[in-house]
Design a protein around this nucleic acid. Structure first.
Lengths: 217, 217, 217, 217
DNA sequence: AATGAATGAGCGTTCATTCAT
DNA sequence: GATGAATGAACGCTCATTCAT
């Protein structure tokens, strides 16, 4: 919460007073925006639609956000804080690198399954060209990749992860695979259990798809 | 294909015939659109910008395309045809599943490295929410996944790919990893050699990141 | 005055009484408005900006003023009263018409030099199309012109001002010239002494630009 | 005309072709804008109102003008060229300085009487605070003042205008008086003949309001 | 077939004004 | 009296699309 408040303050010229910071309207607007963005995409969404969904007047959005782009940016910042704190906690619960990786991915899939709107928005924008939002997304990806990096390095020291691998490649390989699993789930019409994909993914990462007969080179 | 033509025909006075699609202007517009889309993103691009880059009048675009969305859709169809024929040829050149997979990925990375504009547009829209374009992208992904599926199944029969894996998961795992490698390259400022990432990727797929010490379960 | 109060009263719950107009906040708002209007012009000024400069809440302004236009209108009335009383006093100090005219113009230039914000606002709006404010400005101009009229008529009786001149023209001729001198000073970057322009202006009025050789007809 | 075309070209990023330059729509919009601006003032005028009056779509205005401000700026440039060429011609017809001055003022008053909308807009903005438009207005005033300067200097050489006067003051004194006459006429309800004020004004300039009995100092 | 001037619906944003506290 | 969060009408501007030439 306090971290959240900090975010709001630094991103506005006229800081919102305590009332507004803890105000439900701010969160109502963010959640409404998530729904609309998820449903229609950012550019097809209008401020009027978000305002209507949030049950506020159009102008009210501009009391909390600089402009339409800022709604998206703050949505990311807000969700990222929420979600990433959970990621770090979950990672701590594991001892070995593999355990940590499993915990991370399981939590990642659980959170995105729980908050489908966020998942849609996140996956939509993760690779989308948009100068204003791009830097924020990149920063978020970086945070995730940093967590994975630490785990991979620990694994290499433990001797459970191959030492001949370039960490920069491995971490993206892992994130790419998880993203791919999330996207598949999002597009799937039948709502299967996303978080149950964690173990099969871990298995793929660690053992690979090959058998001992398959030459890697 | 025929269904698509039909849709266009009923909504225009001058139906777009097959001949038009082979016309010089048609391709000039598509390549111009790719450049503009890659540079600014779809929504920030305007018909005027594309027309100017293509050296035609704004109205001319509507002789070849139903609307702005259709430019994007046809761009994907056009590029997909071009690229996928190459993919299939390359796969044929390999005998074993692993060889085929290496050929496919190497060609994939080569093509995207060669045509950076296409790469940007493709990666931007692959996961983007857009009803009109979505079905086309999905179809393209499906074609790719089908190729991978065949390869994986062959590998399982050969005994070079583990039989205990669900093909539906493996194929997306592979595509996700390749996409991830492409995105990393696209965002990288230093223009390293993307296609040289094929072998490390194959190595990751087949052997996994784990050592024999690492328990997968 | 009474008519004005009436208008305000019928449109508000809390009528603005005479006491309120002498209140400290009332004047703080007027002075703040002058600064903002002078800096940005009326339409580019916002109630928020004025409120902030005055150190009151936006809503507070509506306790003292009917609306934004009314702030400008009351500003003129307030300043006019202040300034014109001084004008009349100054005129009284002179005996001859020429002396009175010199005193008037000298005071006029002194006051506008002293309160540059007022000068900017006054000169900006004096000729500006604005139905709501227009009548007030006209009334002020009229007061000024009336003073000049009296002086001119006295001069004609004294024999120091030509009798063959139409007073209606002469008074506007004089005001126009003074306005022109003020505007020149306002636009000038170097802050020369405006009030020192009084004597040269008087000289121009009385003797004209011509020599005895120049035929007026 | 050619001068006019030049103005359009330099003020637009995408120069309008010959068709548009000579197009009646451009002038229809300018004249419509003048009417609306004169009637309501710039800020109370909307693009929609101007478009409607001109008989074009709102968007059409943006084919000829960068934005709303640009409509005003181009209006001034357009009218200024029109009017000032006439001013210079008229001045040439006179021989003596006084004659030239009379011709200039007579033409000035005639033109403003003929095109009342222009007169209103011109007089409204001449002293109005507006950064975007200000420079243009100033330039126009400067052109006028330059003409007057030349005349005054000629008069001083001829010996018909007093040599002990500062030209910088005299020229503004003259323009201020003429402006004052125009403003009086604009506000007058009875439509008297403005151009007939030229001779009385000249008389005031040359002989002054004083008699030989009135001491200037 | 090709053009590009014209259109007008649609949207982001501002800000004077209100009113519950 | 005082506040300032909330409102929503209003407007400038964009740009996909059309159609007369």
């Amino acid at each position: 919460m306090s971290i959240h408040s900090f975010i709001i303050c630094v991103s506005r010229r006229y800081p919102i007073n305590t009332k507004a910071k803890t105000g439900e309207k701010y969160h109502r607007i963010l959640e409404a925006a998530a729904k609309i963005f998820a449903e229609k995409g950012f550019h097809q969404s209008t401020i009027s639609q978000i305002a209507k969904k949030a049950g506020v007047a159009d102008g009210t959005i501009y009391l909390y956000f600089k402009n339409k782009d800022d709604v998206l940016v703050q949505f990311f910042q807000y969700k990222t804080k929420q979600v990433f704190n959970g990621f770090r906690e979950e990672v701590k619960k594991g001892d070995s690198a593999i355990e940590k990786l499993r915990n991370l991915i399981h939590r990642h899939l659980s959170e995105f399954q729980r908050d489908r709107d966020m998942a849609v928005v996140y996956q939509s924008f993760a690779y989308h060209k948009n100068d204003l939002v791009e830097s924020n997304i990149r920063e978020m990806s970086k945070m995730y990749l940093d967590i994975v990096s630490e785990i991979v390095e620990q694994g290499q020291q433990e001797g459970t992860i191959r030492k001949d691998l370039y960490v920069g490649l491995v971490k993206r390989f892992i994130l790419g695979s998880v993203d791919s699993a999330i996207n598949t789930w999002l597009r799937s019409t039948k709502g299967y259990d996303l978080k149950s994909m964690a173990d099969p993914l871990i298995d793929l990462f660690t053992r690979g798809i090959g058998t001992s007969e398959s030459p890697s080179e």
